[in-house]
Nucleic acid binder design. Structure first.
Lengths: 160, 160
DNA sequence: TATTGTTATACTCTATAACTATA
DNA sequence: TATAGTTATAGAGTATAACAATA
């Protein structure tokens, strides 16, 4: 795949950074399109995107304290209060005081919450943009983005 | 770190959608990291992310009417007013009434605006996440995301 | 003293609707 | 009537700082 694109003479790195720039811009454009599609699906579930993502990050089989949810969402603790308020009003999550440490409240996904969470997961795990890729291309893509995400945040990409 | 069940040959179509789900989630995670890095750089230029992206979309060699900028940013016309206000206050852009149609205002990037725009472009065209990819991997990645973006929005991906 | 969840508050970003001045 | 830009306004999302309860 290495052509000799001699754009500026004597700049072997020029091609790489051009390639990188194009790849980055396209990744961001793709992510923006995917995000819009996801938000459309999520809105139809009666949730706002941020609330849906909070539900998505909750593990139905392992209740989390609110602080940990904030860490997973990479946002401040103070935001979690309102997000969980709305999940609780919708009957999707319950707050329970942790008897071991009464400061903490663990977030328990209800039965209804599990059902909705599956729908959220589905909305966040598909994209029409992949339809044109062959199985092999999809496999290559996955390998490449895995390599990238390992570099970005090892502990996060290793989780789950 | 759990070992992922890797089914290579003879996998039914369950594998494709699993692969797709993993790829999508990683792409979104990568885009989120890139966005955060970009916003850090952009903030150091004294701009907010949305203002910087407006400047980025302006073509210094071909002044646009505000309506066209809104289309490129995929947002409502009403937002452009405040964005251009801030660019104009910073001396990076000038509004000029189009003599041919006095309703329109064309947005002209100033000399100072060109300089800042180059910095914005640089911030938006690089990422540390690509550092671990070989030249060939980067080239493959570019080809794959190009194929994806062609499917998403042909006329946009052809632009620039 | 330190930490958890909460509240109050402010800023950014974006959308809708109504206004104005042109066409 | 229709369009370009603007204004007013509202809502979502996120951050900082201060507070009460608990450790």
């Amino acid at each position: 795949m290495a052509h000799r694109t001699i754009r500026r003479a004597g700049s072997p790195k020029g091609n790489r950074s051009e390639l990188a720039g194009d790849a980055i811009r396209r990744i961001m454009q793709i992510a923006s399109t995917i995000r819009q599609d996801q938000d459309t699906d999520i809105t139809q579930l009666g949730l706002t995107p941020a609330v849906a993502r909070a539900l998505y990050e909750l593990d139905p089989d392992r209740p989390l304290p609110a602080r940990e949810l904030a860490e997973q969402l990479r946002c401040d603790r103070s935001n979690v209060t309102a997000l969980v308020d709305r999940l609780e009003q919708a009957g999707l999550v319950e707050r329970r005081i942790d008897p071991a440490d009464r400061r903490q409240k663990t977030l328990v996904v209800t039965t209804a919450g599990r059902r909705v969470r599956v729908r959220v997961q589905q909305a966040m795990s598909k994209s029409r943009l992949l339809a044109g890729l062959s199985d092999e291309e999809l496999s290559d893509l996955r390998a490449l983005v895995t390599k990238m995400s390992d570099r970005g945040c090892p502990e996060v990409s290793a989780a789950e």
